[in-house]
Design a protein around this nucleic acid. Structure first.
Lengths: 141, 141
DNA sequence: TTGAATGCAAAAAATTTGCATATTG
DNA sequence: CAATATGCAAATTTTTTGCATTCAA
């Protein structure tokens, strides 16, 4: 991340202390929503950041490719470092548990979509919803 | 739809004119968001319905199994008749086009998740995001 | 008749935007 | 010094909730 400043500057952006702190928080939490990040940044010793700064910076950092986000449900974007191991999320509609699975599990599906529609799918942008083993067993009774 | 009234009554619910009009609107539009439905219902000749009635009824009708919803993006639930042909949605992150694809395309993927995690995936609950043929071709240059 | 449903207005929750001020490069 | 970023408050957008009134069964 030493060239982060350069990546930013190359796009006319600046490396501000706020940006560094936000990146640190994303790294520390693994993945988190904007307001969780705001809370985390507020506890790193420095002054709290306004929520709008959080939002604007997550967007900026995503453009530069430092972070990216996925949606575990229809309303929470969760951010993580872009170089974080890639995996897709399975969210149980019943108990809410989140399971991580290697993206490879979707390869045949992704291949189908490409062959059939020329569509390049990013299966990890949105979580896959359904029912976990425990909940589907419960429902089967 | 003649037994809709019974299905509702069996659960202590009632068949109101508002409910019928909402179902008609869902059928007419194919699939639409709550506010689009509100607009559509408002043009069927009768009086407009309050948005809260729309929301409460979509929820009620979904419980009874008459309608169901999917999320094309992280903020718009789109409702359709439950007996409407099942398909999954591919949404282009670049141009926004929505492509429908038979759920069968996801069978191997769904099978993998079941085998690997015991997870019963409902791939059509959330749209699959990615890039359509045109946009990915453009990006390749 | 009576409990469920409606309408309206106010409350929430989650982002986004305007703008004056502070800062980076 | 000039242009980008920040902070704060206000505006949006979308959905939910309280409550008095209406209506289906």
């Amino acid at each position: 991340m030493s060239d982060l400043g350069e990546s930013l500057r190359a796009r006319g952006m600046r490396l501000t202390p706020q940006r560094s702190r936000i990146i640190d928080a994303v790294r520390a939490l693994g993945h988190a929503t904007p307001d969780l990040l705001a809370a985390a940044v507020g506890q790193d010793g420095g002054p709290a950041l306004s929520l709008s700064t959080i939002y604007r910076n997550l967007e900026a950092l995503e453009e530069v490719g430092v972070v990216s986000h996925t949606h575990l449900d229809h309303r929470s974007p969760t951010y993580h470092l872009a170089d974080h191991a890639e995996h897709l999320h399975l969210v149980c509609l019943s108990c809410g548990v989140v399971i991580e699975s290697p993206v490879g599990a979707a390869d045949p599906f992704v291949g189908n979509l490409l062959a059939r529609h020329g569509f390049v799918a990013d299966v990890k942008h949105m979580a896959i919803h359904g029912w976990c083993r425990a909940c589907s067993a419960k429902a089967a009774q």
